[in-house]
Design a protein around this nucleic acid. Structure first.
Lengths: 197, 197
DNA sequence: GCCATTATTTAGCGATCGCTACATGTATCC
DNA sequence: GGATACATGTAGCGATCGCTAAATAATGGC
């Protein structure tokens, strides 16, 4: 350590850093991404990260919010009330399958997968963010089949959860979409008047 | 450390220890269970654990094998060739839903959830063990609808994966079973001669 | 009795975890 | 210029991770 001076880089781009963190968390999941991974990817040191984002959990939360804002499925466009509900929900499943298998590195649903993190705080953040989407689907279904809304919503969410998991496991987009289409067939007779209760 | 003598307990029961480890891994998942958790639960010290089971990953593998041997779904009894295949596969989904939601603490499928562990070795062990079940289902389906075997098998596995995840998230057994039954409806028209492909 | 084997004990290894104290540098106000 | 605010740098905190070396106690063969 001779005549070495400490150099300082200009302040780093927080939005760009958040985008990189989002990609890392999405690709590997909350628990498998360390602070060291993040600081290396963002090209900064830990104090800068904490000054900018507060903590690993808060950074994860902001990354999920960014993901939800930029990559969320267009529920409002897919679940239009004028559409036959079985067709609309099938379209939702297919759209999810497409997105979950679209990017080779960012597979599955970041929020949905986050719900199964080992860290409790991360889990709860993911659950809170995911609840909004679940509520939207439930509200749509309830308008079409009030008595069976919970079961149908459960089914759609379970299928999406399975699609996300298999996407993370490497299933191709084509196979995911084929599964989504087949899954939609279970809904075909669910919205006819008085069907099954 | 006065006149304190080192006392030694009798050798611990390895099978009982494996059972306890199995429960721990099932309840919390591979990554979230530490060696300290295991040694405390088994009432032993780390060297005893390593002498008996080799490593954390090997212990996990043996726990999964034990789980598969004792708690596996009775595929051979459910997927009997004489049964209508849509009915048999629905029964499989329902049986899975029942099992995944049966025990308050041991929710979901240990093997299936293990496939998503952060640790690579654990993931691969779970994948290898789970492959046997997937192959069995595929073989059954292929005997009934060779051309659509992969898609139908994918659908069944995705649904089971979703059921396991939601079981881990706390969904009641009744709701899981209802989802399984609804999921089965997608299969009703898949095995009629020449349907869709 | 006596040794070899086996299983336990205490104690701690090196690595990594999330996170932070403190000093150094730059920018902004006056 | 000088003071203040702030973001960066180095360095390292205490805790936990999976795992193990070395010493001690029980066991079985002879």
């Amino acid at each position: 350590m001779d005549a070495q001076q400490r150099k300082r880089k200009p302040p780093f781009d927080r939005e760009e850093g958040l985008a990189k963190a989002q990609a890392l968390f999405h690709a590997r999941g909350y628990d498998a991404v360390s602070i060291a991974d993040l600081t290396q990817e963002l090209g900064i040191n830990p104090p800068s990260l904490y000054a900018a984002y507060g903590s690993k959990a808060e950074l994860f939360e902001r990354a999920m919010q960014r993901h939800a804002a930029m990559n969320a499925l267009p529920l409002a466009k897919i679940l239009v009330p004028s559409r036959p509900p079985d067709e609309a929900l099938t379209a939702l499943l297919v759209a999810a399958a497409r997105q979950y298998g679209a990017d080779e590195r960012l597979r599955g649903c970041m929020v949905t997968e986050g719900m199964r993190a080992d860290d409790k705080a991360a889990r709860e953040m993911a659950h809170a963010i995911g609840q909004a989407g679940a509520d939207a689907i439930h509200a749509y279904v309830a308008a079409k089949a009030p008595k069976r809304a919970r079961q149908i919503t459960d089914y759609v969410l379970v299928t999406m959860r399975g699609l996300s998991s298999f996407a993370c496991l490497g299933m191709t987009q084509a196979r995911l979409v084929a599964v989504a289409r087949l899954a939609g067939r279970a809904l075909e007779s669910e919205f006819t008047a008085g069907s099954r209760g």
